[in-house]
Design a protein around this nucleic acid. Structure first.
Lengths: 207, 207
DNA sequence: ATAGCGTACCCCCATTTTGGGGTAACTATA
DNA sequence: TATAGTTACCCCAAAATGGGGGTACGCTAT
């Protein structure tokens, strides 16, 4: 069965090129091809494609906004972002909005078909440069505050929203014991309130 | 110049295979090849490779522990994990520990050389399945609690560790106003303490 | 025009948290 | 055998927070 693909790309030359590239292979059919994504929801409903190629920078509505709109009504269709931007913000916004892949325009000609196949088989597609950015963002890690196992445990419970009392009963320790632990934790994390501790713990991946 | 590669892999057949595969191309030289990573730090210092291929499941010390050790003394060397595991935990642990790529053993023969080249040129290498896992983890997004702009602003300040007082002075509002906003925020988020709110806000990416 | 929402402020009271001071047993280790 | 680190407990007082009430103004959409 043919794979249905809809294209959003405001550069007409590139758009035509994409259409041709996809049509050359007899596995794909281009169900729609547009210079902006103002009617994206209607077109999605109408054409029901398997894959959407979405440029980020388009007049009227950005590709990222379009992805958000699409994901509100359809979580299934695969969306590959197609863009000249390789900066952190665009990549993360697109991924968080719900894109399944991120292809830089300079790589389109070699990578398009394989990317499409990757997402069709349930995977995601990222160029090495994009993958590097994503991985780096996961690695900004933990200064080591040398929390003991017990301190770590108590911090974890605190981060789940437990009060001192709840932590005490959870761990079968006295309220006062929890207090002294938390004092020590605050000291080690260099904070002075539960909210600071929780925010630091989560953001720096201590828990 | 030749690219120096060290291999850690306890399956001897596979290890020999990797050596041959790499040596076939005249761009690589295998500087070391070991069945466990007990001496990884000494070997790293001795051989100073450009790339390390690291199996996850090895006797004595896991590849993930080895990566952590390596990253404590060397942030430059690229590390490609080589494993049969494609479960969430192993992938994330490896990436967070500092791996630059993650290759499933079933894909090794076709993907090894291109993965090595990807990481050599400063990128990262992930199979589509791994990329999918990583992307999915970034997408678990925001139930919409319909916070107003002001409520969002106050929640953000709360998450940074500010007390009610500090928020009030920051926004030039009265202490009591902040209190009533926070009460409303708790209601919308269905929580009843600052720690819960902060944890929910960060984990569900509300801020 | 009126109901709803967001904004901004105020009161009370009880509970919780924080910051400062302690003590003491146990374990590991140098 | 000191010494450090962890675990566990206690007191006090001040500050912050949570839950419950309110009022008022302006905007918007019905």
């Amino acid at each position: 069965m043919l794979t249905k693909i809809t294209i959003y790309e405001d550069n007409e030359t590139l758009r035509k090129g994409l259409e041709e590239l996809l049509t050359l292979s007899d596995e794909f059919v281009v169900t729609g091809s547009y210079g902006n994504c103002m009617q994206v929801l209607e077109q999605l409903k109408e054409e029901n494609p398997d894959i959407i190629l979405m440029d980020i920078d388009m007049p009227g509505m950005t590709g990222i906004e379009a992805v958000k709109k699409i994901r509100q009504v359809n979580t299934g269709v695969a969306i590959i972002m197609l863009t000249v931007f390789d900066d952190n913000k665009n990549v993360f916004d697109a991924i968080c909005a719900g894109a399944s892949g991120y292809l830089l325009k300079k790589n389109v000609s070699e990578k398009l078909i394989s990317s499409v196949k990757d997402v069709l088989s349930g995977g995601a597609s990222m160029s090495p440069a994009i993958a590097k950015m994503v991985i780096s963002s996961m690695q900004r890690h933990a200064a080591d505050y040398r929390l003991s196992a017990r301190e770590h445990e108590i911090l974890t419970l605190l981060c789940k929203g437990n009060s001192y009392k709840m932590i005490a009963s959870e761990l079968n320790l006295s309220f006062e014991t929890i207090r002294s632990y938390i004092k020590k934790i605050y000291e080690k994390l260099q904070v002075s309130s539960a909210t600071e501790a929780v925010s630091k713990a989560i953001n720096e991946r201590l828990i």
